[in-house]
Every structure is written in C-alpha cells, then in structure tokens.
Design a protein around this nucleic acid. Structure first.
Lengths: 224, 224
DNA sequence: ATAATGCTTCGGCTAGCATCGAAGTATGAA
DNA sequence: TTCATACTTCGATGCTAGCCGAAGCATTAT
C-alpha cells in the first residue's frame, strides 16, 4: 500500500523535502529525515519500489526526485487533510533563498543563475543541448576565448566530459556541468565576479555588483 | 500524520469499504477489516481522531462514514497511485445489489426504496423534514389512515419518536425510521407487498410485483 | 596504485503498535 | 427488573519494521 510508505515519519520528511520540486541526493535526504545514510538508503529503495520517487545518477551521487506531478499532487492533498485535522506540519520553505539563486554544485555554478547561463548559451548557440548531451560549438569556443580567456585545451580531461547536463534542484532544470562548467566557475572567482560564502559548509555563491553586471552582459536572461 | 492512519492494512480496508459512500457500523467495519470488534474500535477511534471519519449514533449502533468528500478524493487518488505501481487492490463492490434496493434497517425499510419513500412523503407534504427532525403533518395522518389503515394511536410509544431520520448507507441519504417507519414496514409485510428474505441473517427485502405497484402508487419517485 | 566519498547490503537490536481476551458501559428488548 | 446486543476500555502478548554499526561495492580524486 502506498499510504504505508508515506506513513513513516522519516519517509514523510523525505517526501516533504522533495515536494518543493527540488532533487536531492541520498545523503541530503538522510539528514532531512534525521536518519543515518544506511537507514535512508532502505527508505529510498522502498519509495522507489512504490513508484513515488525516481533516481537520477550523477557521478557518485544519486539524485532523487518525485516520480510524477501526480505524486506531488497527492502529497499536497494529504498535507491539506493533515492541516485541517490540526496536525499542522509547517515545514516552511528551505532556509536560504540565496541558495536558490546561486550556489556551488561540486565545482560549477548552480541555481537560477546557473540555469540562466545554460539557457543563454543555448540561445546564443554557444552549445547545442539535446537531452542529456551538450556539445560546445565552434562559436562557443570563440566566445569563451574572447570574453573569458578560456581555451579548449584547458577543458580536456582524461575521464571527464567538457559539457554535461546537471539537474538543478532549485529550478528543476538543467545547468552546465563538466570541465567547462568548472572552468567558468573558476574564472568567475578569479575575476572576482563571485565568491563562495565564507561560512563553513555553505554552498551559497555571492555575486558582486560588478560581477553581476558582467555576468548579465554575457549570459543575460531572455527578456533583457 | 494522516498517511500513517491509512497505511495500516486493517484501517485501509475499513476506509475502502467506506469509500463506496455507505455508512457502516463498527461491527460491519470490523469484519470488513478482518479483525475483532475491540481492535476495530481502536482503529476507528484513531481514524476519527485524525478527522477521516465521522460517527453517527443510531440507537445502539454507531454508523461511521467518511468525514468529507475531500477525504474520499484523497483516498481515491491514493488508490490510483497504488494501481499504477502495480499494487492493485481490486475490492469490487458489495455483494448484493438487492441490499441497495430494499432492506430491513432494524424494523423499517431502508435502501433506495426507503429513501424514495421519505422523499415522496416530503413532496406530498405528509411530513415536514428539517435537518434531523421529521414531523408528521395532519395531511399525513389522513393519508396513512385512508390508504394504509395506520392510525395515530398505533404510533405512540413511551420512549420512541413517531418519526426519525435514519441515515441510509447505500443511498447516503436519510430514510424514515421511528414508530411510523416500523408501522409502515409492518403493514407492507401484512399486505404481502414485501417480505424479508428467508436466508438467515439476510437483510434483503423482496417486493412482490403487485406490492411494487401499490408502493409506487403511494410513494412513486419524482419523475413518475 | 592508494585514499576518499557516496551509497548500499548485512545482521542484530529495540520500540512501537496491532492484536486479542476479558471485563466494563450503554442502549434497547422482554 | 433482567437479559441481550453493540461497543468500548484495559492489560498483556507478539510481530513487524525502523534503526544503527560494520562491512562491501562504486566512483572520483591524488
């Protein structure tokens, strides 16, 4: 029975975390639920078996998201019932809205700005994006060399692709990973357009006023 | 959490039984769930505490029904998810459709015909029906005396009202109980319009061809 | 290669909860 | 009144399932 899956508090916490439309790693879900990774692993296997969530492998991470909008729908209705019965479960949105805007995803930029950057690159035909595959175009190489002093040879790596689509959990869309994604983030840091938050463990990336302007000039949103 | 309530198999069976829109007694729900009455009592208390079901006392019975259309909605969606995951839960409708049409409710007529009778009586202004209260009108007294030879003094009883609204679980609406309800059923039997099913424990009431005609003449449905 | 990280599987422990028997209340019948 | 039925509460038992420690892949970093 599906309800039994949702009934367990640990699993309910996981699902509630996923309800925000983000995709989270197994470890992140473990701490959301307040259990150890091995316990979480068992729960996640059950949720997956019940068709409530779906995994997406990404390097040595395993991102989980809700399997379906229908699942989210049922969960919300369920939460609505609980609220009416007085068993309110507040669980307000994630802590930092800054995280949604810009953050480190391993070594590359994620968040709204990361998604926006990939969108812009596709629109400018710097890359071609089909499904999971992303290819750097010749125009893209020129663009990178001219504006950011990133040369193709800087991007070669024995076992890592230049471009890769990476699921962004705050925007629920893909942003750019791979050696190019890492190189871009590195350059942004070197140029002092952006800097990682000094707080230990924080994944927030803060853009400077000037940095934001330069970034927008290269990768501005569609409407701009 | 609400989902935990639905998660237990016994409770899930109870809710599924109630999902058909009927109201069932605690004992009936116990056998639906396949547990003893005392176990069922505990489950029902929890479901009531969670706001999923609501009791309606009726003599020494306790009828339970889903608290809200919303609850039914969520349960159906939940079942839909389960079906998609392959964990189909068939649970086809109740055994006898005859039960839905006409049956004994203690000593009076219930089922579609019971509901239809009360509707017709209201329409003919034989009774006034406001909320739970039903009052026999003067016209009603005349009608009963003329067509069924039921006199007002036959309906007096030390501790029982003449008219009472009784929740009909198959139609999910009220039918007529009280001494009048009992007297009507008694008269139908005497006139051989209807007879209780001979099977032991059966609550089915079978109408004869002629009985059905006479009944329809007095208490026909709105469209007729 | 070696080390480190992310995640899973295995095994044993424990808490919680469903379950039932028995006894207690409430309602109605005789 | 006394008896029967419907339902609940209490008390004790037993089983499920969540939990963690330790160990086992898998992937990536150095």
């Amino acid at each position: 029975m599906v309800a039994a899956l949702v009934g367990d508090p640990a699993r309910a916490n996981m699902l509630t975390a996923l309800l925000s439309g983000r995709a989270l790693t197994a470890t992140e879900l473990a701490q959301e639920a307040g259990v150890t990774p091995q316990t979480a692993s068992s729960h996640l296997a059950k949720l997956e078996g019940g068709g409530l969530i779906e995994p997406e492998k990404q390097g040595r991470h395993r991102y989980y998201r809700l399997a379906d909008p229908d699942v989210a729908d049922v969960l919300e209705k369920l939460a609505g019932l609980a609220a009416r019965a007085g068993h309110m479960r507040v669980r307000t949105g994630p802590k930092e809205p800054e995280l949604r805007r810009a953050r480190i995803c391993y070594d590359h930029l994620a968040g709204d700005l990361g998604v926006q950057m990939l969108d812009s690159m596709v629109r400018q035909k710097l890359v071609r994006h089909r499904k999971q595959e992303i290819i750097l175009t010749e125009e893209g190489e020129h663009f990178l060399a001219r504006h950011l002093r990133i040369s193709p040879e800087m991007l070669t790596h024995p076992r890592r692709p230049v471009c890769k689509a990476c699921l962004d959990w705050s925007a629920r869309r893909h942003h750019l990973a791979g050696t190019l994604g890492a190189a871009l983030m590195k350059r942004f840091t070197e140029l002092k357009w952006a800097a990682r938050d000094t707080t230990a463990g924080s994944r927030v990336v803060n853009f400077s006023r000037a940095g934001e302007k330069h970034f927008a000039a290269l990768f501005g949103a569609a409407g701009d």
